[in-house]
């Protein structure tokens, strides 16, 4: 028996009136991972996150959190919505009291310590905080709940570079300290490298990629060679995207072995190139084998 995944969606779909925001989504985030949910605007990221924290009820399928239905797992989940909602009229101390009153696992000492380290006064009104401070207070309220799964929707949007760094640093410190699983969405891939170790790509309401980032990057190559032989090569290899100009062709392929044809050169790809290649080719998908979805 393997431990249940922190989050596991099966056949998940959500329809708003006639349009499907998310369709037939089966995806898992293993426990202990920091997972990035990536996709263009309107791809269904927020819908997937809202389904994961019970803000929305699914039209089809289901979500399980550590093997249990979402509704029974609210003590183990914390959610930070994109607008970082807080009660603007509350003082920071009152936001902590809010968390304490509504959560049995609340860690008040840790929350106060964290805010003291950040230099955010408890007497300040939430409405008078800067954007970065608001995000930090919202993150503090989420972390003090002592969740096993923390879900963040675009946590870094509308923050300046310094505040982004501070927020990410705080998040990583919490991960290192408690081993909680994180699922965060973003449409800026470069923010995620070095922070996340699991990747989920949604595009047009469907899951396109789901897997370990290192394995994913290592499993792809960018091949460059003469254009006239590109078709023959593409017939033999799983090509994600094609590019190049004139007599030179480039192929991003899901294949780690070096090309046999000496006229072709191969080089490793980075995360951003891989993600972009998939987003440009919505028909392509690389989804984990069943073992990968539940293991680790």
């Amino acid at each position: 028996m393997t431990a249940p995944a922190a989050l596991e969606a099966t056949g998940l779909g959500r329809r708003y009136r006639r349009t499907w925001a998310l369709r037939d989504c089966s995806v898992a985030v293993p426990s202990g991972r920091v997972a990035a949910l990536v996709g263009p605007n309107g791809a269904g990221k927020t819908t997937l996150l809202h389904l994961a924290v019970g803000m929305l009820a699914p039209t089809t399928g289901e979500v399980r959190i550590f093997g249990r239905p979402v509704r029974e797992s609210m003590e183990r989940i914390a959610f930070l919505a994109q607008s970082k909602p807080l009660y603007a009229g509350f003082r920071v101390a009152e936001m902590l009291r809010f968390g304490r009153e509504l959560n049995p696992r609340w860690d008040d000492a840790a929350a106060r310590r964290r805010l003291a380290e950040l230099g955010i006064p408890l007497e300040r009104r939430v409405g008078g905080l800067s954007g970065g401070q608001r995000t930090q207070v919202a993150l503090t309220v989420a972390l003090a709940k002592r969740p096993d799964l923390l879900v963040l929707d675009e946590p870094l949007a509308d923050l300046d570079p310094l505040a982004r760094d501070d927020v990410m640093r705080g998040l990583m410190a919490a991960v290192a300290e408690t081993g909680l699983t994180v699922l965060l969405s973003s449409h800026v891939v470069s923010e995620l490298e070095g922070v996340c170790d699991w990747l989920v790509v949604v595009n047009g309401g469907r899951v396109q990629v789901s897997g370990d980032i290192d394995e994913l990057v290592a499993g792809h190559r960018l091949l460059t060679g003469p254009a006239e032989t590109a078709d023959a090569l593409a017939a033999r290899l799983p090509v994600i995207s094609r590019g190049g100009a004139g007599r030179q062709a480039t192929l991003l392929v899901r294949d780690a072995t070096p090309p046999l044809d000496p006229r072709w050169t191969a080089r490793p790809v980075n995360l951003e190139e891989t993600v972009l290649a998939y987003l440009r080719a919505p028909d392509q998908a690389t989804l984990p084998r069943p073992s990968l979805a539940s293991a680790r």
């Binding site: 803000m55 807080l86 049995p104 309220v141």
Partner: peptide, 14 residues
Amino acid sequence: ERGTNALAWTQSVS
């Protein structure tokens, strides 16, 4: 209106 339902309804209290 303020989006605080996303805060209030994702706590341990249902």
